[in-house]
Write a protein that binds this DNA or RNA. Sequence first.
DNA 1: ATTGTATGCGAGCGATCACTCGCGTCAGCA
DNA 2: TGCTGACGCGAGTGATCGCTCGCATACAAT
Lengths: 206, 206
Amino acid sequence: MAGRQQSVAPRKRPQQQRSRAMVERIVAAGREVLLRDGYDAFSTNRVADRAGISPGSLYQYFPNKAAIVAAVIDRYSDEVADRVAGALTDRLGEFGPAMIRDTADALVEALAANVDLLRVVMEDLPATSNRERRTALEQRVRELVMAYLAARPGTTRSTDHATTAWVLVMAIENLAVRYVLDEPAISRERFLDEVVALCAGYLAVA
Amino acid sequence: MAGRQQSVAPRKRPQQQRSRAMVERIVAAGREVLLRDGYDAFSTNRVADRAGISPGSLYQYFPNKAAIVAAVIDRYSDEVADRVAGALTDRLGEFGPAMIRDTADALVEALAANVDLLRVVMEDLPATSNRERRTALEQRVRELVMAYLAARPGTTRSTDHATTAWVLVMAIENLAVRYVLDEPAISRERFLDEVVALCAGYLAVA
DNA sequence: ATTGTATGCGAGCGATCACTCGCGTCAGCA
DNA sequence: TGCTGACGCGAGTGATCGCTCGCATACAAT
């Protein structure tokens, strides 16, 4: 149908100190261009320019334009995941509404920390450049939710934890993203209350 | 940040019969290119080619490339809205789970009717080319949900129907889209059950 | 028939862009 | 100190693309 895939694997590995610094500068410049000029203006020449290097140098480590975008998204994605994971490591044993609330809070916090980049990634980039990474992340989260459901004290509505987890993840993910991006007239506390109500209600229904 | 806007208003209105037919052919060709070649390959020259006309003719009625894409999306969006609206006109007075279920069913049905185009629109196009139309539609649906909530018999968890409607619309919209696009291992009936459970639970929680 | 206008054509302009290549430079090692 | 490969440069290439413009044609009104 569309979108021929091209490899995104690095062309060669930086070996010396300066070349490692160069890769850093390229990714940083890529992020900067994405933020300041948008994806439409994201040309390899412009990225090289912003990084203060030559277009040729850029292609020493990145096989093509898509690879640079991917690298930028990778870093951002890791940032978000780390923030959420970090916020939850202390509370691993928790159960019930408090844990749901804390998780949602951490997610919103992580997304809000870089609204501008989130907006570009979600609304400017074609979702294709993002899809694999996103589904992989969803997959991981879904498994965590399933584990939670399996270990969950009290009755569960259904024994099909896979389906339940899928529904929860899809619903909450979108809610959090849209809450951060669209800034509806709902306070943070209120939003978290609603998320908790949604989850609790869904899990409790006969 | 990004994405300079350009007008999407028609350059001039077709007056004769043949020119109206031409506009049709252009939009149809645009849709076809989007489906068969993807957005990356969506060039005005290619659209003209597929429509069997000259690039010059294309610009008699569309001011730029974005306008053609917008026209294609407009038609598709109307198709979906019409299908959903049509499926629900008979059941306007209904309340409770049955209505929620029917609505979700109609939505999934409408989206599934054109999966390929939905995929291109959601995953290939930058969301920006879609944003206004989508938020407008969400706004309309939200108002319908609010009306439903206001007229709803039985206790409601909260009196802030605006927030409740926002949460419901955002959650269900994404669930339906992802269900159609990602084709998770969940039967249609089961999916509808889950949607009903999610809504019912959310609305019922103390 | 004639005229004015709406319509359609398609070669091609100007600009951009992803990416390359030949060459100079520099770091690290013997 | 001299050598070798890693590194970096930047002008340039080939291709694409959005869009225009001068001109031919089809239609409608008179």
